[in-house]
């Protein structure tokens, strides 16, 4: 099933448009309208939470981080020059903050959990391919695979799977479109390793 969500980005990457309802809301936020800010928060909460949780896997941390992203939006609203859609700009902020937290978490886990690297090896390598691979198992394997790839590649995977087009991702993560494609290519190659058994049997 494809992920089709009206809240998610469109196929093209238009610049900020005055017809965009988010833009109208954002203009009010720029003028420090607290009510508009609340509405913007509600409109973006799920999208931000989903992306951040996929990256960080920690509810409490993500819950706080979504607030932090919105507070940055409030403070930096005046800096927005309309060179992208509002959603792209907000996701760019979310991406940078998530990446920072992701690196911090990783450092913390490596420092405090000596078995962390070992834990990430999927069971399939221990149990052998003859095991029946359930949906949960595939999910687990993909999660393990995502843990092994770099944060940069992972965020490209997550944003792609959330329905962002590659020019939009390029804007969000602030890199050329070709870099987005390359990161996705390598990420997919790495994930394939984790899923090879489930796919080689088909």
């Amino acid at each position: 099933m494809l992920l089709v969500n009206q809240n998610l980005p469109t196929k093209r990457m238009p610049l900020a448009s005055t017809d965009d309802p988010d833009m109208i809301l954002f203009q009010r936020v720029k003028r420090k309208d607290r009510q508009a800010f609340e509405q913007l928060f509600l409109a973006y909460h799920e999208r931000l939470y989903r992306f951040m949780f996929r990256m960080l896997q920690q509810h409490e941390q993500v819950d706080e981080l979504v607030d932090d992203v919105m507070l940055v939006v409030w403070q930096k609203a005046g800096d927005f020059r309309g060179q992208s859609k509002i959603s792209t700009w907000i996701m760019g902020i979310a991406h940078r903050m998530t990446l920072k937290t992701y690196q911090k978490n990783k450092k913390y886990r490596l420092k405090h959990d000596s078995n962390y690297e070992l834990d990430r090896i999927p069971d399939q390598f221990e149990a052998g391919p003859e095991n029946t691979i359930s949906r949960d198992k595939v999910y687990e394997q993909i999660q393990c695979g995502l843990e092994t790839i770099s944060a940069d590649k992972r965020s490209v995977v997550e944003l792609t799977m959330q329905g962002y087009s590659y020019p939009e991702i390029a804007k969000i993560i602030d890199c050329p479109v070709n870099t987005v494609k390359t990161r996705m290519f390598h990420a997919r190659k790495a994930l394939k390793v984790f899923l090879q058994d489930s796919f080689s049997d088909r």
Binding site: M1, L2, L3, R34, F37, E38, F41, L42, H45, E46, Y49, R50, F53, R54, H59, D63, V66, D67, M70, L71, W74, V138, Y139, I142, Q143, V157, E158, M161, Q162, R188, L191, K192, L195, S198, F199, R202
Partner: peptide, 30 residues
């Protein structure tokens, strides 16, 4: 390859327990 990508996509669509947005907390932080 497409099947692999769809599998990845489906797993990323897994239900995440997204909490109710806490407006009061946000406004307090503001």
């Amino acid at each position: 390859e497409i099947e692999l990508l769809r599998t990845i996509q489906n797993t990323t669509e897994e239900n995440i327990d997204i909490p109710v947005p806490n407006r009061d907390r946000l406004m307090q932080k503001l």
